[in-house]
């Protein structure tokens, strides 16, 4: 009898596969790592060999330089590599550009490590692809019924309404530099905002990378160096850490916006001094998490990081065996 924990189990470095001798998204440097996506807490530098989608490898190269791993092997979506009887396939996760679920098969057992994922449409990456499996390893970042992300079109409409309402100010949207920033830009373009968007320097290389993979971001200009008059009535995109810093003083009376799933909670917005919270998340919300589990109906659910107890409770109520892996090192905040 093959048990799932014989195929994958948690170690201090991360989720480990003994028969294939590799880790998935390890938080420390290891010999062999399969990497689901480019966010820093999942993709770190220094592995002996890194396996990931071409997009994720490109992101790692931009962030860590050419020598980010001893060797890098690109796996396109659907491509399978085998090692000692273990087959690994990467399929789209819908989280950010290049994000993938790792489908691990061995002796008739299928386990899916979904990494971070979402189910709704994202114009900057390939949509999540459900894979039938015995064990589904899920994230739980927003696994509380309070997190139900509204439609992104409504959030972008609120931003544009505010821009029209306060033409004498500029709007600075805090957005994580990988994924969220480009998605906000793309959504603005889809909503008809074709004016130049001003961007913080920290976003420039990733924006160029997205463009290189065919995501058209439209006219962009550096915010640094632009005059106050030029920035009046305009929208700028910056990493959240740049809001309310001396960098932000270049903007005329800026409206601080923040694009994040955490903005659903008013106290979070208030604590961070956010005037215009935009509820835009790259993670599955409560309804997406539970709908995914109901759709896949795996034999077992493993929960990696976030609010494990609430999702485990839901599984319990819905007759799905579940266990929390208590993996450490994945950030709660990166949305």
């Amino acid at each position: 009898m093959i048990r799932p924990q014989d195929l994958l189990h948690p170690r201090p470095e991360g989720l480990y596969c003994p028969p294939g001798d590799f880790y998935i998204d390890p938080t420390r440097a290891v010999d062999r790592a399969v990497i689901t996506h480019g966010h820093a807490d999942h993709a770190r530098a220094g592995h002996g060999a890194a396996f990931a989608t071409p997009e994720t490898l490109a992101i790692m190269q931009v962030r860590y330089g050419a020598n980010f791993a001893g060797s890098a092997q690109a796996m396109t979506y659907g491509e399978t590599i085998r090692r000692d009887g273990v087959a690994v396939t990467l399929v789209p996760a819908g989280h950010v550009l290049g994000s993938a679920q790792a489908v691990v098969r061995w002796k008739g057992l299928t386990m899916v490590v979904s990494g971070d994922y979402k189910r709704r449409r994202d114009p900057t990456c390939t949509a999540f692809e459900p894979v039938q499996c015995d064990v589904f390893v899920t994230e739980a970042t927003f696994a509380l019924p309070v997190f139900r992300h509204p439609p992104d079109t409504g959030e972008i409409a609120r931003l544009l309404h505010s821009v029209a309402q306060f033409p004498e100010r500029s709007h600075v949207v805090g957005a994580y530099s990988l994924g969220k920033a480009q998605r906000v830009i793309r959504l603005l373009r889809e909503a008809g905002w074709d004016r130049t968007l001003y961007v913080h320097g920290a976003l420039e290389r990733l924006n160029a990378l997205y463009e290189g993979f065919g995501v058209d971001l439209g006219p962009l200009a550096p915010a640094t160096g632009a005059s106050k008059a030029e920035l009046t009535g305009q929208i700028a995109i910056a990493p959240p850490s740049a809001l309310a810093t001396p960098w932000a003083r270049r903007f005329p009376d800026p409206v601080d916006a923040f694009a994040s799933g955490w903005m659903r909670i008013r106290a979070r917005a208030r604590q961070q001094g956010v005037e215009l919270p935009l509820i835009l998340s790259d993670h599955a919300d409560w309804d997406e998490l539970t709908a995914t589990l109901a759709e896949l109906h795996p034999g077992e659910v493993w929960i990696t990081h976030g609010r494990e107890e609430a999702l485990a409770r839901w599984c319990d109520l819905n007759g799905l065996p579940a266990r929390a892996l208590a993996l450490v090192g994945y950030e709660d905040e990166g949305d």
Binding site: L144, P145, V146, I265, R307, A310, R313
Partner: peptide, 12 residues
């Protein structure tokens, strides 16, 4: 589920 509500209330 009251348990899910309790966690939610606690969080918010």
């Amino acid at each position: 589920d009251p348990a899910l509500f309790a966690w939610s209330y606690d969080y918010v």
